[in-house]
Simulated assay, not measured.
Amino acid sequence: MLVRRSFLGAASLLALPATLRAQALEKPKLTLAVGGKNLLYYLPLTIAEQLGYFKAEGLEVSIVDFAGGSQALRAVVGGSADVVSGAFEHTINMQVKGQRLRAFVLQGRAPQIVLGVNPKTMPNFKSVADLKGKKIGVTAPGSSTNVMTNFVLAKAGLKPSDVSIIGVGATQGAVAAMRSGQIDAISNLDPVITLLQRSGDLKIVSDTRIVAEAEKVFGGPMPAACLYAPQSFIDKHPNTTQALANAIVRADKWIQAAGPNDIIKTVPEAFLLGDRAVYIDAFLAAKGALSPDGLVPDKGPETAQRALASIDPEVAKASIDLSAVFTNDFARKANQKYPKA
């Protein structure tokens, strides 16, 4: 009996590290929603997945891809997803609606969204005011591409109701909609934008892939893609949240040190939209707008609130607690764990 007890005691000690690891992550299996996973806007998410960074943190992440960020947002609000890889501004919009969502690691330090017109249907385009009465394609109605469109329109004195907003997704469907003349303008991201640009099917009006241009458009640093989750999820699963932040920060740093060939070898073939050269150009155009460290810039939430308030009366009149829509605590710890790429 003593021998058996000793054996069981030793076995328990051997099993202890694994048990502790299992206890450390409150929710090792989780669902993450994203709107347009192929976009360079979400490149850190894809890198973290493809290079096994989530697995290295003990996570099994099931990524569900939607046509646009507004649909990914609905998934987490409805309970079918735990976390969203989406646009930062959704955290502000949802606080106004009584939903507590919080960003905890950044993927993009500029929106990377490009608004451009169709040279076929608008050959005489001179200014944004010419878009009145026109059809504008966005990834999905209510998504960040729609918000950017409304913002640029507002600066030109136009209301959202002055145009027709059409959801065209973020892949070949968006390209086809422009080339066939179904839409007169498009608000989208890379690689869609670079593909249209190279084929002469796009005239750029506003380009927030360039950090300086984005800051000029929005009047300050405009945080973009991030991981956000309900505050209740973060409170209940702090170690899981930290593991997610670790993986994304590691991916952020890897991207900054990577060359175009490294990216091409890592992303799924389908993301290239049939043209590797276009994807390389798109990556080089977007790289500067990707976050180097996962940290939300200090003035970023204020910029996002101002931008939203200028186009949404509800946001303008609401009393918003910006400290509740983001935290850099997890990203800071992730940078301590992964100081280099």
Rank of each mutant, 00 (worst) to 15 (best):
L8E: 15
A15G: 15
P17C: 13
T19A: 12
A22H: 06
A22I: 05
L25Q: 07
L30T: 10
T31I: 13
T31H: 07
L40K: 11
Y42F: 14
P44I: 07
T46W: 06
I47P: 00
A48N: 03
L51K: 13
Y53Q: 01
Y53L: 06
K55P: 02
L59R: 08
L59Y: 08
E60M: 06
I63N: 10
A67D: 10
Q71E: 15
V77A: 09
G79C: 09
A81H: 08
V83I: 15
V84R: 03
G86K: 04
F88A: 03
I92R: 00
K97F: 00
K97C: 00
Q99P: 00
R100A: 12
F104H: 10
R109N: 11
P111W: 02
I113M: 06
G116R: 07
M122S: 07
M122N: 09
S127A: 13
G133A: 12
K135R: 15
P141M: 11
S144D: 10
T145L: 01
K155M: 03
S161T: 12
D162T: 03
V163E: 00
S164R: 06
S164A: 07
I166R: 02
V168P: 03
T171Y: 04
M178V: 14
M178G: 11
I183F: 06
I183Q: 07
D184W: 05
Q197H: 13
L202G: 06
K203C: 01
R209K: 11
G219D: 09
P221G: 09
P221K: 14
P223Q: 06
Y228G: 02
N239H: 15
T241P: 08
L244F: 05
A247M: 08
A247I: 08
D252R: 07
K253D: 04
A257C: 08
D262E: 08
T266W: 09
T266A: 05
V267K: 12
E269L: 13
A270K: 10
L272Y: 05
A277V: 08
V278I: 15
I280D: 05
I280F: 07
F283C: 10
G294M: 11
G300H: 04
P301Y: 09
Q305I: 00
A307L: 00
A307P: 00
L308D: 01
V315G: 00
K317S: 10
I320Y: 01
D321A: 05
S323A: 12
V325A: 02
N328S: 09
R332I: 12
Q336L: 13
